[in-house]
């Protein structure tokens, strides 16, 4: 739920991005909860159509076009709100980003994340990368096999979370998926 605050313009209580009284757009939070700003509940299982519907509905309220005649400050806030909504939609629609977000609060691993996977796995990824140079099809096929195993583990983890389990194991799985993805996509070349 969105907290009730006071409208910066008319000082009336306001809930949500736009003041019902004076129509002023409110300052957006710097780090909003991405599901909440779309009016959704956090969940790994999503319906993309429902996400888009929520995004359209929310966008119609705060898009800068709605404030074309308002002050520059309000237009800027509208820009920030809409940018938040667009980011929320992007993160939630993407399976990997959504998983990272739900497990860690951020849609991708931190730049300083130094959690190394176990050496055997890393060696395997290195070998797959080497193989990719010679026989891409074989390398990609093997990587896909490992990928689906990890994806099943991830889904199981999120299911167990629904029954009260933790997501502590998620970053490790997601990390491994990241390495496999670079093999499948051909890395950064």
């Amino acid at each position: 739920m969105l907290a009730v605050t006071q409208c910066w313009q008319c000082r009336e209580p306001v809930q949500g991005p736009v003041c019902a009284g004076c129509g002023a757009i409110q300052p957006p939070p710097a780090h909003p909860e991405l599901f909440t700003i779309l009016g959704l509940s956090p969940s790994y299982t999503i319906d993309r159509k429902a996400v888009d519907k929520a995004w359209r509905g929310a966008s119609r309220k705060v898009h800068p076009d709605r404030f074309a005649g308002a002050s520059a400050v309000q237009r800027r806030m509208a820009l920030q709100w809409t940018a938040h909504l667009n980011r929320a939609r992007k993160v939630i629609r993407d399976d990997t980003q959504r998983a990272w977000y739900l497990a860690t609060g951020s849609e991708r691993p931190g730049e300083r994340d130094k959690n190394q996977p176990d050496p055997a796995f890393l060696e395997q990824v290195f070998e797959l990368n080497m193989l990719r140079a010679e026989d891409p099809a074989a390398a990609i096929e093997r990587a896909r096999g490992l990928q689906s195993t990890e994806q099943e583990r991830l889904s199981a983890l999120f299911q167990s979370q629904a029954q009260g389990g933790t997501l502590d194991g998620a970053p490790a799985i997601l990390g491994r998926l990241n390495y496999l993805r670079t093999v499948i996509d051909g890395g950064h070349e």
Partner: peptide, 8 residues
């Protein structure tokens, strides 16, 4: 490895 981008 760099988990952030999958570099090895």
């Amino acid at each position: 490895g760099a988990p952030a981008c999958g570099d090895v």
